[in-house]
């Protein structure tokens, strides 16, 4: 059972406060969506939880299964079970997908266990087939020269192979055509389980037609200003964000 519990998290980037005593709880088995206008702090939340070095955490806690992630190294957080699917996956020339995922799996293996290459490739190929990724991609350099859609599929492939406890999807729908969106969503949905939680960050309600959330939160100026069920996303889509800003100002 993996619950993500963020409490009073404040985060600066270059002395500018982006998250201001942000709190959120995503119980195991649930999918929560965070929506909000540009600059509201959605991506900062995901980067800060993954301990990106450019983000300074000023205070607060972020617990995964009772373990406080704040202060841990990015790789320790990953091995503790938090996976972040990047909005803009980074290109790493020369490092092949197969070698990279293998290294990531080996990094979380106990020393006593031995890595079975045959099983690994069987699983990798199966998941690539599911996500509609050509098997030739195993020997391509990670994200190097990939189209936007290929990069996003590759993120979901890594997520599926690493079997994390909790997944954050940062604008996974951006740059996807409708077919890719379907495939990627199916990949995410197949990973939904009673043990695993998801936080889905998006601008658009469209993604939530495919990955149906249990809850929707609206973020504005570094805080959650409204929460509701999936209908909230539909409302935002038709009305835009301005009505929330107006309500807050009132």
């Amino acid at each position: 059972m993996s619950t993500l519990k963020v409490h009073n998290l404040s985060v600066n980037i270059e002395d500018k406060t982006i998250l201001n005593e942000f709190s959120l709880e995503v119980p195991a088995g649930e999918v929560h969506a965070i929506m909000g206008p540009n600059g509201s702090g959605k991506s900062t939340l995901s980067k800060a939880l993954a301990a990106h070095p450019s983000y300074d955490v000023l205070g607060g806690t972020a617990e995964l299964d009772g373990c406080n992630l704040i202060g841990m190294e990015p790789d320790e957080i990953s091995r503790a079970g938090l996976f972040l699917a990047f909005q803009y996956p980074i290109e790493v020339p020369g490092v092949t997908i197969a070698n990279f995922i293998r290294a990531a799996i080996q990094a979380r293996m106990e020393d006593s266990k031995s890595f079975k290459a045959v099983d690994y490739y069987k699983e990798l190929y199966q998941k690539m087939d599911d996500l509609g990724i050509d098997r030739k991609f195993t020997s391509r350099s990670l994200n190097d020269g990939f189209s936007g859609g290929e990069k996003k599929r590759c993120e979901i492939l890594q997520m599926a192979m690493l079997d994390p406890k909790f997944c954050i999807l940062d604008e996974t729908d951006s740059g996807l055509d409708i077919d890719a969106l379907r495939v990627v969503s199916a990949g995410v949905n197949s990973m939904r389980s009673a043990e695993r939680g998801f936080l889905v960050i998006t601008h658009y309600q469209r993604l939530l037609d495919y990955i149906v959330p249990d809850k929707v939160h609206v973020m504005w100026e570094g805080k959650i200003v409204r929460s509701g069920d999936k209908e909230l996303a539909t409302e935002l889509e038709s009305k835009g964000y301005d009505w929330i800003k107006e309500e807050l100002a009132a």
Partner: peptide, 12 residues
């Protein structure tokens, strides 16, 4: 690049 790879569990 290093952050991305660390996010997958590899040490720096």
């Amino acid at each position: 690049q290093i952050f991305y790879m660390q996010q997958r569990g590899l040490s720096e």
